[in-house]
Design a protein around this nucleic acid. Structure first.
Lengths: 199, 199
DNA sequence: AGCACATCTTGACACTGTCAAAATAGCACC
DNA sequence: GGTGCTATTTTGACAGTGTCAAGATGTGCT
């Protein structure tokens, strides 16, 4: 029962469904994902998925949850280069955030964007996850303030709100193709670092 | 034929449809809008709208277009208080932008967010509209730079990209309920003004 | 063997976007 | 008046959609 055997009914639907769904979303966008196409792709009947996800929303939420975990990992990985200087640290963080978002729109689109999960099921459960995600950033800002690398004129909360908004906005506008020059991405990130962290 | 009489077939479908659609979106979100419900609400048959909008996308695009116009008007109106001091000007602009977005999510959700119009019809036509909108902001930044109110270390384009991202991000996160404390809105705006424009 | 359970499938329902063909209403001119 | 032309709207239809209830099927335990 190595979690992926072929012997059982399917072995590991749930997981397979999530992965297949992510692929469909990557190729065709969130609106291109239908439960039935998904079931087809995986080779089960239309309503098999409903034994693993209550809802389509539930599926999307699960994927979004994955997204939060994956982005956090990616950011941690980018930073784990020992005790770098503050400037390097900031640049690593900013670039890691935006890069991951731009490279994984199939997740990022689901992580934020009420519209997707504003259906019936989880109006709150999910905002909570993103708020938790944000809180971790606030703590990061607090550490930076305590170590004296950024000023204290603004509370950590306010500073975090504005700067994170910027990261989020940059990511969204790049994903949505409004900041069209993909090569500008790095320049924008470093401009953001200049403005917010004076690096 | 005063553009809204009852005598003709309908008088002014198109307009009526747009307004009704906006109302549905306000009440039920973008996903709550269906062409058939819309037709019902207006009192015509399901496929009447298709003679005024090629697509559902076309309808959404029209609404988004309205949104761009309306927000621009709202911002102009907020600023048109003569020649205010730079600080007041900035605060007016920032507040006008975010306020309008938060108060009109039914439009703002459509104005940005590729997902909505990434269907078949207009992949470019629309990114163009938002990019045009952004360009006007770049020009604004250029004026502020020329008048010496903001520094020139960064190009107008970069500065505009980062600061507008922030406005957009703030708006999105407020709309999506991730910055939960609605009362914080003003504080966030003024923090943004502090960071970007030193006011 | 048999049972209990987890898992999957079939049939069905109401709803969606959209199109082709038919109906209707208004206008312009004889 | 009528006659045609065009703009507008409706009906019928098709393929998809999310989701549920009822039935079928395989798995592991005793």
């Amino acid at each position: 029962m190595t979690t992926a055997k072929k012997s059982y009914h399917h072995g590991d639907l749930k997981g397979t469904l999530e992965e297949a769904a992510v692929e469909i979303i990557r190729l065709e966008g969130v609106n291109g994902l239908s439960m039935r196409k998904l079931a087809d792709k995986v080779g089960v009947s239309r309503s098999a998925p409903y034994h693993h996800f209550e809802d389509k929303q539930a599926l999307l939420s699960a994927i979004a949850h994955r997204g939060f975990v994956l982005q956090a990992e990616a950011i941690d990985a980018a930073e784990c280069q020992g005790e770098a200087a503050f400037e390097a640290q900031v640049m690593q963080f900013v670039n890691a955030y935006v890069n991951w978002a731009v490279e994984h729109p199939e997740y990022y689109d689901l992580m934020f964007g009420s519209e997707v999960w504003q259906g019936n099921t989880p109006p709150e459960q999910f905002a909570q996850e993103s708020r938790g995600y944000f809180r971790r950033y606030v703590e990061r800002v607090q550490r930076w303030q305590r170590s004296g690398h950024i000023g204290q004129e603004l509370s950590a909360l306010r500073f975090a709100q504005v700067s994170w908004s910027s990261l989020h906005g940059i990511s969204r506008l790049l994903i949505d193709g409004i900041y069209v020059d993909k090569k500008a991405q790095e320049a924008i990130c470093s401009a953001a670092a200049t403005i917010f962290f004076k690096v």
